[in-house]
Simulated assay, not measured.
Amino acid sequence: MRHTNSILSKMTYMITASLRNRVVGILSIFLLFFSYAIPVFAEAEHGSNLDSIKRLNSMSKAVKQKNYEIIFVNTSTDSSANPSFQYIHVNQNGKIYAQLLSLEGIVREIILKDNQVSYKQQDRASFTMNSSRIVEVFPDIVFNDFKLLSQYYDYYPVGKARIANRSAQLIRILAKDRDRNSYVLWLDDDTSIPLRIDLYNDKNILLQQFKVIKLTPLTHTQSFLNDLQQQDNYPVLVSQDKITDASDFELSYIPAGFVQQSQSHIDYRHAEISSQLYSDGVFSFSVNVSKAHKKVKTYSLQKGSQIIFTTGINNNEVTIIGDLPLETIKRIVKNIHIKKQR
């Protein structure tokens, strides 16, 4: 019996040792694999991020430098209307000429030449503003240095898709915090021009969509340039109101990456309005403070990505207009310090 127990003990020890050696061996292989795999995965993620930045910067360059015509629609989730437009863009020796034409309803035309944008409208007075681009076409996200923006956004290549009968690369631009909205872009494989741009809020709900129906690269542009030069020049819009750089309030909370673009104090029809504009290059918001002549009700309105939030602070009416999440706008309002008591 003792001999049998001794044999069983040795067999148990040998089996246990064998299993232990196999487990150790498996763990060693597992650890060895991950010691190499983790840097490889990190390098792959870093590489895809750099590739996305390169693609996005190529998009920004293409939109500004190439000659093309697009037919596109702008869709807002809170509107049943899907207006369509024709946009022609020509770069001649570094000078930009462009035309945006509404394809439905009342004819509205916007023309860019000589760094001036003219608004030709049938139902209201036509006018001209100083500007280097027609802002009603592409969202501001298109005109950025995406390497700099990577402090506040992550870029994820999503894959390939087909849109406007063209092959495109999808890239998701995801905000690193909840103070911003996010985008998904479809970039044309041949030209890098965006074929579709979806804007999502912090709850991943679609707010707005820019979608190209047809893209045509242009090789002959002289006829378009000749027609544009014959267009009437409208009066340059100049404000007659008194504007100064003074401001009656300070913000103690500003979302990371947002920089003040301007501040002004306007005497508009004997009503003083103090205003500040902020932007991170992608999104923007303005804060406007004026004297309240009666009790101000707190309310908010949203159209697409744009939110208007109004409330009362002491004897002042405060209005914020911006394409930020509502909770971020409320946080900004809570941290307004009004220096001048009215």
Rank of each mutant, 00 (worst) to 15 (best):
A62T: 12
I141F: 02
K54I: 08
G105I: 13
N49V: 11
M129R: 04
I26F: 13
S52V: 07
E136C: 12
K120R: 09
Y97G: 06
I134R: 06
R108M: 04
Y36D: 09
N93D: 09
V63I: 14
S131W: 06
S131R: 06
K113T: 01
S28I: 06
S60V: 00
F34D: 10
Q92S: 15
I110G: 02
R133H: 11
L32I: 09
P83G: 08
I88E: 04
S48R: 13
V117M: 01
M129V: 08
I111F: 00
V24S: 04
L27C: 12
D145E: 15
I141N: 00
S76P: 01
F146K: 01
A125M: 09
Q121I: 15
V73E: 12
S52R: 00
S52K: 10
I71E: 03
S79R: 14
K64H: 11
M59W: 05
A44L: 14
N67W: 11
F146C: 01
A42G: 14
Q122Y: 14
L103F: 15
N82T: 15
I29Y: 05
R55N: 08
I71M: 10
F34G: 05
S84M: 14
G47Y: 08
F72C: 03
I106P: 06
S126W: 00
F34V: 09
T75I: 04
E109M: 00
P39K: 05
Y36H: 07
I141T: 01
S132H: 14
V63N: 03
A44E: 11
F34Y: 12
V117T: 01
G47W: 00
N130A: 13
N115P: 04
K120G: 00
N91C: 14
V117Y: 00
I53S: 00
I96C: 03
P139T: 05
E136L: 13
L103C: 08
S28K: 07
T128F: 04
I29W: 05
V90A: 00
Q122H: 01
D78S: 11
F138H: 04
E45V: 03
F127M: 07
I26G: 04
A125K: 13
R133Q: 06
L103K: 12
L101E: 03
G105T: 09
I71D: 10
S126G: 11
N49W: 04
K95N: 15
L103D: 09
L101Q: 11
M59A: 02
I26C: 07
Y68I: 11
I134A: 08
L27S: 14
N49D: 10
T77Q: 08
T128H: 07
Y68R: 08
G47P: 05
